[in-house]
């Protein structure tokens, strides 16, 4: 059992997963102790369990679901010039992408042969 308790050491960092797990479970126990002192009951089938929708009624579970299509609005809005440039590059036909692929790899190869670390 003790063998598992040794810490994994790497040149820059070290970590002991088993100890971490034990500590996490014990803190979970501490949190559970505080949690269990609270009130458990609630009125099950009444209006109380309906999701909060500013007083209105949500007809069905599907209506309560919010699609995530605009989740990245924040990013697109903030980095608009970058995304616009990206959009221009993505023309959609494959040979453009293949051309990009060949171009980049050849560029990398040239750099590698000039200054690359010899094996």
């Amino acid at each position: 059992m003790v063998g598992a308790l040794n810490t994994y050491v790497t040149p820059s960092g070290f970590w002991n997963p088993i100890l971490w797990l034990i500590a996490f479970l014990i803190s979970l126990l501490l949190a559970y102790i505080i949690w269990s002192r609270g009130e458990k009951s609630y009125k099950k089938e009444t209006e109380q369990v309906k999701p909060f929708f500013a007083g209105n009624v949500i007809e069905s579970k599907e209506r309560a679901h919010v699609r995530a299509h605009n989740i990245y609005w924040g990013f697109v809005e903030a980095l608009r010039p970058y995304y616009m440039a990206l959009k221009r590059i993505h023309t959609g036909d494959v040979n453009d992408y293949v051309a990009w692929f060949i171009g980049v790899t050849s560029f990398m190869l040239i750099i590698y042969f000039l200054w690359g670390v010899k094996p």
């Binding site: 209006e47 109380q48 909060f52 007083g55």
Partner: peptide
């Protein structure tokens, strides 16, 4: 509805 949704 709001009143019913409040905890006890």
């Amino acid at each position: 509805r709001i009143y019913n949704q409040m905890p006890d």
